[in-house]
């Protein structure tokens, strides 16, 4: 344990002890003080990295196992349906899945239903593929279909005819005859479809308009706040789900544990779980202390 981590734990522990002392005396905690402590709780573990163990949950494991089980050369569609606000949680999932899919020798078709998703997709194309897979060739191993306006309308068309919606890739190359899209007539012909996002259109629309009607294997990576809405579709319409930064961290753990050449890869999902875990602990303590004050004041009112 480094000095920085010890300093972090002392600061957070000290703040919680002070909060507890005030609460036990029946005094409310000033809102500005809560803001200050939350700021420190998130910032310090980022400055002095604090990492925890993450065991993949069954929902995450099923996506990992599905990609592992597909024969090399399988075709996977990745849809970037998110914006920078969701990116800290969702981009790590998209990046690690891209690494996993290419490491297994599968082919990828990238696309986006969000205008901002195109720029997020470029982050993967610029930071992951040229760095970790310099031998991967556009058209043969991956294709960028880009963003299409039309939300659910786009999904309805690609559910029956993908080339009609994407006659060319984002840079104008004809998609007909591309090895990465060999034999693909509709989105249902892919071996696996994964949507990353949490808004509308997002994984839910993919299930309603593509996964359920075509029967294609579908998985989702979503912001934590959207994950509960997707549980009704698991496991029948959706084979797995990565929820929030924890889902990303679990997937990174599974991937880095099995692929030694990626053991030292950037793992932003695991990295942000440090501040997130500490913030959870502080919020948990605040809930408990808030209730201590509440019951104490209720008892005092009862005895008065």
């Amino acid at each position: 344990m480094t000095t920085g981590v010890i300093f972090t734990l002392v600061v957070i522990g000290g703040a919680l002890a002070y909060f507890a002392w005030r609460s036990l005396r029946g005094k409310e905690i000033d809102r500005r003080l809560i803001f200050l402590v939350i700021g420190a709780t998130v910032a310090l573990p980022l400055i002095f990295p604090l990492e925890f163990e993450h065991q993949p949950s069954p929902l995450v494991e099923r996506i990992y196992e599905r990609i592992e089980a597909l024969p090399p050369g399988s075709q996977i569609l990745l849809s970037y349906d998110f914006d920078p606000g969701m990116a800290p949680e969702v981009q790590p999932m998209a990046d690690v899945i891209t690494r996993h899919v290419l490491a297994r020798g599968h082919r990828i078709a990238f696309m986006s239903l969000w205008a901002t998703g195109q720029a997020q997709l470029n982050q993967t194309l610029n930071n992951v593929i040229p760095v970790d897979f310099p031998e991967a060739e556009i058209e043969r191993d991956w294709v960028n279909l880009g963003f299409k306006a039309g939300n659910e309308g786009v999904l309805r068309v690609i559910a029956s005819d993908l080339p009609k919606m994407f006659p060319t890739d984002v840079e104008g190359r004809p998609t007909a005859g591309m090895p990465a899209l060999e034999g693909i007539r509709s989105a249902g012909d892919f071996d696996l479809v994964i949507s990353f996002g949490g808004g509308k259109p997002g994984p839910r629309e993919w299930i309603l308009f593509v996964a359920d009607p075509t029967g294609v294997d579908f998985a989702a990576g979503t912001a934590a706040v959207s994950a509960p809405e997707l549980y009704p579709y698991y496991p029948n319409q959706m084979l797995g789900l990565m929820g929030g930064a924890k889902g990303a961290a679990e997937y990174e753990t599974a991937f880095m544990g099995q692929y030694e050449q990626f053991a030292d890869m950037p793992s932003p999902g695991r990295r942000i779980m440090g501040p997130l875990t500490m913030a959870h602990i502080v919020i948990l303590a605040l809930i408990v202390l808030g209730n201590v004050i509440y019951f104490r004041s209720r008892r005092e009112r009862g005895t008065a």
């Binding site: 905690i29 809102r31 809560i34 803001f35 939350i38 700021g39 998130v42 914006d83 920078p84 606000g85 990116a87 800290p88 913030a279 502080v282 919020i283 605040l286 809930i287 202390l289 808030g290 209730n291 509440y294 019951f295």
Partner: peptide, 23 residues
């Protein structure tokens, strides 16, 4: 800009959970 908007939520959630999440 978007990260800032989302980051602000952490502060409000913490404050709200202390004040409103009571049995």
């Amino acid at each position: 800009i978007q990260a800032t908007m989302f980051a602000l939520l952490a502060f409000f959630i913490a404050s709200a959970s202390y004040r409103a999440f009571r049995a």
